[in-house]
Design a binder for these strands. Structure first.
Lengths: 142, 142
DNA sequence: CTTGAACCTACAGTAGCTAGAGGATGTAGA
DNA sequence: TCTACATCCTCTAGCTACTGTAGGTTCAAG
């Protein structure tokens, strides 16, 4: 039987985060000691590992909820899980494209800084100059 | 004189976002009509363009506040602005590295999906199997 | 003068946690 | 057994960067 702290260490999660997952129904309510402290078993350890791994892959908590549901019903079609993963992959590729553009522009900004006064600063100039903006009025993703 | 809606369209910002920027002190309080509606000039248009551009480049609102401050004091050293941009570049490169790793793993998941039942699903298997996790206990960034 | 789009304030909600207060529990050593 | 103290508990508020809604007012065109 694991305390919440031990579970936290084993999965690289904060204690509060585990309680938060319980609160939003992503983790089940565990057993308690007489004094009211949570005690976990291996099933919970596996489930939390699944959740953390999926989070590291960028899945939203909602997507993870779906994946857990699929995982709980082994007879269901794999297609849904595949669709979720594909959606995730698409999002990741979009973010990559954006970030690569940002890197280019930031590099340019840094290289062109002459080290003088801010009035000559390319960093500020690039940000001021709207016409150099590559991606106009695009939404700002995370 | 621009209404808030026109300013929003010109900069690709939502009206509420402009009011929010005003509230947190990123945009100045503009002039008002007799009826109390906001009216903007070119200075505000420039400032908001600066903010949006910086946001698209991934700068936090705090970083933008610093940049605006530098921009408002043209005598200051450029080094600070440069430092902010460098910090930002570093973050972008870290995010890129993470996302590239994620893409690899997601691609593998998707390609290996056999199309059968969830009990054989590679997507779920990969998420379940902690040992295949490349990046253990790393923090989850945006 | 009327209509309707755009404006106003104020407040609540989003994701995904994180931090703190103030107090209870569990366990190891003396 | 007592004590110390790390860990646990609940509850609430805060974070970033917005977004949405309700209920009401103003502006400009026809």
């Amino acid at each position: 039987m694991l305390t919440i702290g031990t579970l936290a260490k084993k999965t690289g999660t904060k204690v509060q985060t585990i309680r938060y997952y319980e609160q939003i129904g992503l983790m089940p309510e565990p057993g308690r000691t007489e004094g009211g402290q949570r005690r976990y078993g291996n099933a919970e350890l596996d489930r939390l590992s699944f959740v953390r791994h999926a989070r590291q892959l960028g899945f939203s908590l909602d997507a993870i909820r779906e994946l857990l549901d699929l995982s709980d019903h082994p007879g269901k079609s794999c297609a849904e899980a595949d669709a979720i993963a594909r959606r995730q992959l698409k999002q990741v590729e979009q973010r990559l494209a954006r970030l690569e553009a940002l890197r280019t522009e930031l590099k340019r900004m840094v290289h062109e800084c002459s080290g003088g006064q801010t009035s000559d600063c390319r960093v500020l100039e690039v940000l001021r100059d709207h016409s150099e903006c590559l991606t106009e009025h695009e939404d700002i993703g995370a």
